[in-house]
């Protein structure tokens, strides 16, 4: 079984978000980048399934510029076998999906795993695009993934419940908890990651279909209005008469 795991390089979850003075770009200064937290579920589950089967490969794929390589190496340290970086600025989801679809097709991958969504752009869309480009099913977001031969059984989260879905390879799934306990690299992993293959390839396909013209921060809160705990019922009156939400 050949697994392709797509990882995106995103600001650490504790990052205070700021933009350049013209509000056109995200201000990367001083920002720590991490593997998108959802993608860690995809990566760990692929490694677990490969180990359980006793054969197969796990390839990680990122569409990004050279500054994403530390996180690609981290994925290799966690246990992926090799990596591919499409050397391009990830312009938009469509552009990223085109790159993933091209690599998936060329390498004839059986299982293409991603995270539910990127925590920077919150698109929740690349998986469906890739599935459609390749003409294969997509299961998103998946909370559980088991494989038996070429058949996968997944639990897909729907609003208010879940669906049990079964699909044959090749397919795309986007992963979220509680699929597995994401692994962290150990010392041996970090040592071997240095020599694992990381191939850099050029981008293909059509240009992006969307452009960000401007970023903005949400309006600041007015400040909290405190109500005395002894008089807690007062809060309910304020919620009805002042905030008008109950």
């Amino acid at each position: 079984m050949k697994f392709l795991v797509c990882i995106s390089n995103v600001p650490d979850t504790t990052t205070k978000i700021t933009f350049t003075p013209d509000n056109k770009e995200f201000n990367k200064a001083g920002v720590q980048f991490v593997i998108n937290p959802w993608d860690e579920y995809a990566l760990t589950r692929a490694i677990e399934l490969k180990e359980a089967a006793g054969s197969g490969t796990v390839t990680v794929l990122n569409v990004g510029e050279a500054d994403t390589e530390p996180n690609i190496r981290k994925a290799l340290a966690i246990g992926a076998d090799d990596a591919i970086r499409v050397n391009a600025h990830p312009q938009d989801a469509y552009f990223v999906a085109e790159q993933i679809a091209a690599i998936a097709k060329e390498g004839a991958y059986d299982v293409i795993l991603m995270g539910k969504e990127s925590i920077d752009y919150n698109g929740f869309q690349v998986h469906g695009m890739v599935g459609e480009m390749l003409g294969i099913p997509t299961v998103a977001p998946a909370m559980k993934l088991d494989m038996s031969g070429n058949t996968a059984t997944l639990e897909r989260e729907i609003e208010g419940g879940k669906e049990i879905v079964s699909v044959n390879t090749p397919f795309v799934a986007s992963c979220q908890q509680p699929m597995c306990e994401p692994r962290i690299p150990n010392m041996r992993g970090i040592m071997t990651a240095r020599t694992k293959p990381l191939k850099v390839v050029a981008a293909v396909g059509e240009p992006a279909r969307t452009q960000v013209s401007e970023f903005a921060l949400p309006p600041k809160k007015q400040g909290v209005k405190l109500i005395d705990a002894a008089n807690a019922g007062e809060l309910i009156k304020l919620l009805r008469n002042e905030a008008k939400v109950i």
Partner: peptide, 10 residues
């Protein structure tokens, strides 16, 4: 965008 920490005009 950015998990509710910002907005983007697209």
């Amino acid at each position: 965008a950015f998990s509710g920490k910002a907005f983007a005009d697209v």
